[in-house]
Design a protein around this nucleic acid. Sequence first.
DNA 1: TTGTAGGCGTTATCAG
DNA 2: CTGATAACGCCTACAA
Lengths: 329, 329
Amino acid sequence: MTIYDIAKVAGVSASTVSRVINNKENIKKETRDKVKQILREYNYIPNDQARGLVTRSTKLIGILVVDIRNAHHTDIAFVVEKFLRKKGYCSIILNAGEDESEMCEAIRIIEQRRVDGVLLIGSMFQNKRVKTEIIQNLSHIPIVMANGYIDRSNVYGVLVDEYEGVKKCVDLLFSKGKNNIAFIAKSTTPSSQEKIKGYIEGLKKHNYLEKDIIIIETNNTLKGGYKATQELLMEKKHIDAIIYSEDIIAVGGIQAVKDLGLCIPKKVAIIGVDNTIYGQIISPSLTSLDNKMTDMALQASNILIDDLEGMNHPEKIMLFSEIVERETT
Amino acid sequence: MTIYDIAKVAGVSASTVSRVINNKENIKKETRDKVKQILREYNYIPNDQARGLVTRSTKLIGILVVDIRNAHHTDIAFVVEKFLRKKGYCSIILNAGEDESEMCEAIRIIEQRRVDGVLLIGSMFQNKRVKTEIIQNLSHIPIVMANGYIDRSNVYGVLVDEYEGVKKCVDLLFSKGKNNIAFIAKSTTPSSQEKIKGYIEGLKKHNYLEKDIIIIETNNTLKGGYKATQELLMEKKHIDAIIYSEDIIAVGGIQAVKDLGLCIPKKVAIIGVDNTIYGQIISPSLTSLDNKMTDMALQASNILIDDLEGMNHPEKIMLFSEIVERETT
DNA sequence: TTGTAGGCGTTATCAG
DNA sequence: CTGATAACGCCTACAA
């Protein structure tokens, strides 16, 4: 069913049908009504593909996440998809992986799809190869990075001050009388690097010595958190608080602390980051730094659409994280 | 950058370029090499939109889920997207909501996008309006329903025997000496209806009387599970086991039981469904019916692609669920 | 082995 | 107010 078919039935030209479909002015009411009627009758649905070929727009947004199964990415994907759809766009979601070449591959795919804009979710996309790929092949469409930024004219960044946030976590722990604070992280992401910086600065503020800074590397899983925590606490019995780079690691940590028979938060206090539902499920419930991921995602989509519609926006905006206190502190 | 641009540079016609791009036979090696070289040099990327217009295929798959934030939907989205991408397809994911008209709206959107195939994730899509919508407007492309089925020639169904699964859960509880088993569910989905049937049949097998069947309705949240469980146990103190229609509800249930000071599983045993990560986070860890959601999703995508590539498949296949036993039983 | 011409379903331009 | 006609970028007979 094409506009030609409709045109034939209606006894008008295809252009007229097109005009009716696109609500153009200057059509006789009669004609418009008749065409509309037939459109409905035949349940005509325009072909976005053909339409896009001439309007040079797909109304498609490419959304890249490392792994949608990360709780915060999931929430983001939900919020963003809903928002974009309301604005008339569809979302192509790609799990781009952690590997730089995988990411570039994903970028190339959305490029081939001629998406109207791109959302890069997560700090992981802030690396050299991705940057090069974007400069070379994606400089003609708007890109918004949620939790990241690249200094290019078509790239926007929405960031969260995780640095300040973690510093506040350290403050909170000191205020609770904790003096031996460790940090357990999946450290390979730029976002984690920020958090680590915040941790170190936080400690320094409280006159910590360089040698007392304890940063443990692990992977981003329940098991990773468990193992790292267990090893840490067996070796360094004076530790009385641990901050984790992500909730899921913290949850593993809580389980380890419990298994060691240590009291939370009395013997060991714990703080996670992301404020996911995991924190409400685990017992004791987890104090977590809410890094406003969904706010960020919404801001990001908003900026993207605004740019697409010709509105201006600052290249870079910053959101403020917030500690949600629960039983582990 | 179009094939015409490339053609001009290479000193050949556009069709030759097209042939090279699509790896057609009968091209002089020299020509092919030269064109390929230029293609690379100019970093040419074909326009899928234009291509699809003539091949009548978008290489786009529409994926409808009720809400991608449901843990099992998330896993599915991940697995499916990865799989489809490897096969050369992109995924348009829509959160279709629980409302029938929202669902139909979503269906109309993917229709307009001219997707090559559709994946309907979850039993919720098994309703009259969706069925009508599919029959009227989506009869020309393959549709695979994960955890659902509609009897149409272009619709496949991949199902899990949740009925048998829940029956097995009842058996397990009886074998542990439990005799007063309740069921708490968000009952509005066809899938829940299956589970409820399994619960009832399971009880009947063990000579339960109709009047002792206890089914409590709640919503699909932590809080819902908590409240329903609390109320149930305060009122009926003889209950010694509860099955929940979803893990997240069961997790709320565990918290309620603990808050009431009752021992799990000694006083009250608990079983969830979905085998999500929540079950590993909560303490005591949750026994759960693994309904093989990701297997199902993979099967579903596989069938979809096979159909698209002209291969045959049975209209309907069934997977077997499996109890993963942990501390709550 | 290669080029020409036509068409996929729309929208946009320009006459009328 | 409406209708031809030409793009959009690509693929595919058919012809050469």
